[in-house]
């Protein structure tokens, strides 16, 4: 029983990371109808920026905030410079550019910071204020930070005028433009937010998996799986899907398949959900008019 609880809780901690990435993927998917295959590498690059700031002597939380700001601006810049000109290009062009970005970020990180693994500090105290063997302090911290971030994003989209404008721009670009919303700016904002959310995920997982340019590929796969399970049209669903994938990963790893086939497990989940319930758990079914 202890093992079950322990695995579930550590699954929730990993799930928080997957949820963040799934949310970032869904935000971009809603804005431009494409999967951001570079989301993981963008998050990895942001994490390296934070690592560099800390190595230069910045306190953790200063580095955290500066890294978020840089990621936000970087995300906007990518949308403005690279994706705006090919907005109407065929889907393959988008996939190719996403792959190109993956390559560029991966290689740039390897060039600047080399491929050796680096330790990334955890900002949380070494011991929990209460006695437990079920969950470590960093895992509690991950879940806490993620929940705070998700809460803030929920408030932002639900209660602020810009959040409303962004939702409008994603739901119906034409009508949004007619009521005076700059869809371009909203797209840029969406990218910036997605990049920042990804950066948080990267900084939270880096102390667990160690920092290196290839650290995010498998994690991104789980992020995608979370997004697919929850439903690509539903940000809240993606978050639930991410947590669910974390728990499933931990339980399946302990009781069913062992730790060596985790990525295959994600593959099976993705294909199965896309086949049998393409809309995911919480997504709406998209009907295409022909």
């Amino acid at each position: 029983m202890d093992q079950f609880l322990q695995q579930t809780l550590s699954g929730l901690a990993n799930g928080a990371i997957y949820a963040s990435l799934a949310l970032a993927v869904v935000m971009i998917y809603q804005a431009i109808d494409h999967f951001n295959f570079a989301q993981g590498e963008m998050a990895m690059f942001s994490t390296f920026i934070a690592w560099q700031l800390i190595a230069w002597g910045a306190p953790y939380w200063v580095a955290f905030v500066v890294c978020l700001a840089i990621s936000f601006i970087g995300g906007m810049a990518i949308e403005r410079i690279i994706f705006a000109p090919i907005h109407d290009a065929p889907a393959l062009s988008h996939v190719v550019v996403f792959i190109a970005l993956t390559l560029i970020f991966n290689a740039m990180a390897g060039f600047i910071w080399e491929f050796t693994i680096k330790e990334f500090p955890s900002p949380f105290p070494a011991e929990l204020p209460f006695e437990t063997k079920l969950i470590g302090p960093h895992e509690v911290g991950i879940v806490g930070i993620t929940l705070i971030m998700l809460g803030m994003i929920y408030v932002f989209f639900r209660f602020t005028p810009i959040g409303l404008a962004m939702r409008a721009a994603a739901a119906s670009p034409e009508s949004a433009r007619l009521v005076g919303i700059s869809v371009k700016k909203m797209l840029g904002l969406g990218w910036g937010l997605a990049a920042a959310v990804g950066a948080v995920a990267g900084m939270m997982i880096a102390p667990v998996v160690f920092l290196e340019p290839n650290m995010m590929l498998g994690i991104l796969l789980y992020g995608f799986a979370g997004a697919v399970v929850g439903g690509l049209t539903s940000p809240g669903g993606a978050v639930v899907g991410g947590f669910l994938m974390g728990v499933l990963e931990a339980l399946a790893g302990t009781y069913v398949i062992g730790s060596e086939l985790k990525l295959t497990f994600a593959l099976v989940v993705i294909v199965a959900v896309l086949l049998f319930r393409p809309a995911g758990l919480f997504g709406r079914v998209v009907v295409q008019r022909v």
Binding site: D33, H34, F35, A91, G218, E260, L263, L267, V271, L274
Partner: peptide, 28 residues
Amino acid sequence: PALRLEGLFLALATFALAVATPQLLRYE
């Protein structure tokens, strides 16, 4: 199964296949 996956979803499923392959080959 890819028949039911249009465009991007197929890209996603095959992406998952590519990421999972090395691990499958290493499987004990």
